[in-house]
Simulated scan of single mutants.
Amino acid sequence: RYHTGSLAFGSLVLAVVQVIRVTLEYLDHRLKAAENKFAKFLLSCLKCCFWCLEKFIKFLNRNAYIMIAIYGTNFCTSARNAFFLLMRNIIRVAVLDKVTDFLFFLGKLLIVGSVGILAFFFFTHRIKLVQDTAPSLNYYWVPILTVIVGSYLIAHGFFSVYGMCVDTLFLCFCEDLERNDGSPERPYYMSPELSEILLKGHLEPSKSADSQG
């Protein structure tokens, strides 16, 4: 019941911060000719603070929307629960963020590179199968660059969806880890493969304790 209003509220908060940032950029442009160093320093600090605030709100909105989809709670409750849940698993958050960013970067690089090479061979008539269909161009770098930019934008859109899926699975994993302990009375809901990967270090102490007992 909170989905539509919560989405609108999260977007409104982000839009307000972005409007303030645009206003600060406008003031900075108007005050470039001014010689008041204190005003320039204050404006630079405000721009930095609101840039950080915008990044934080985007991060918070992303995880709040996931909690809204899971529990159906309002935006503020979902944002608070998501934030504290991630803070209790901050090490896992940092590791997962770096690993996924690196893998997504490799994926985008592979896609853009492959499409760019294919476009180069296509527009330079080096693919025999499509030599007759390829247009004759004097400056083939322009369409090649266009294809590369387009492939990057498409790849970025697809990987953004995968990124949301990764964040959703991670929040579900953290929630499962806090609500259950893996015992027969409170078993984990995660798959055995996921628990084997993410709970390897967490399960070893419990196994050793059970063997000692």
Rank of each mutant, 00 (worst) to 15 (best):
L118E: 06
F9D: 11
A34F: 11
Y139E: 13
T146N: 13
P143T: 09
L12A: 14
R80E: 06
I68V: 15
L153G: 07
C76H: 11
C45F: 08
M87Q: 07
D97T: 04
S114F: 03
A119H: 05
P184S: 07
F84W: 15
L42S: 14
N36D: 14
F75N: 06
K40F: 07
V142K: 09
K207F: 08
C174N: 01
F173Q: 01
L106S: 05
A69W: 09
D210Y: 03
N74V: 05
H202A: 05
R186E: 04
S160Q: 14
T23V: 15
C172H: 12
I127E: 05
F122R: 01
Q212M: 11
E35R: 08
F104C: 02
N89H: 12
Q18C: 11
R126G: 08
I111L: 12
E185N: 03
F75V: 03
K58W: 15
K128R: 06
L145R: 04
C174T: 03
F105V: 04
S151M: 12
F50M: 10
I154W: 08
N74K: 07
T146E: 13
D181Q: 04
L177P: 00
R92M: 12
G182K: 00
E185Y: 12
G10Y: 06
V99H: 07
G213L: 10
Y189I: 12
A79S: 15
K128M: 11
V13F: 07
D176T: 01
I66N: 03
I91P: 00
F158T: 13
A34I: 02
L194M: 12
E193W: 06
C48R: 03
L103M: 14
A33K: 14
L43I: 02
D210H: 02
Q212C: 02
L7T: 09
M190G: 01
S114L: 12
V19F: 15
G213H: 10
Y189V: 01
F41W: 08
L31G: 06
E175N: 06
L27I: 14
A155V: 06
E193A: 13
K128I: 07
I91V: 13
T23Q: 06
A64F: 04
S44P: 01
A39R: 07
I117H: 07
R30I: 13
K207R: 15
H29D: 14
V147L: 15
S136A: 10
I127W: 10
L53R: 03
D181P: 05
K200N: 00
L46S: 07
M190S: 14
S208V: 00
A79Y: 09
I90R: 08
F105L: 14
K32G: 12
T4H: 06
R179C: 11
N74G: 10
G213M: 08
G116A: 13
Q212V: 02
N74S: 15
F41D: 09
L14N: 08
R1A: 14
Y188Q: 04
L27P: 00
V22K: 02
L42K: 13
K58V: 10
L171R: 01
G150N: 05
A155N: 10
M190K: 00
G5W: 06
M190A: 11
C48F: 08
F75D: 10
P184V: 03
R1N: 08
Q131R: 11
W141V: 07
S151G: 11
L53M: 13
F170I: 00
K32T: 13
V99I: 15
G213D: 09
S206D: 09
A79D: 05
N63R: 09
K108G: 07
A8L: 13
F38M: 09
R30Q: 15
S191R: 01
T100C: 04
L198G: 00
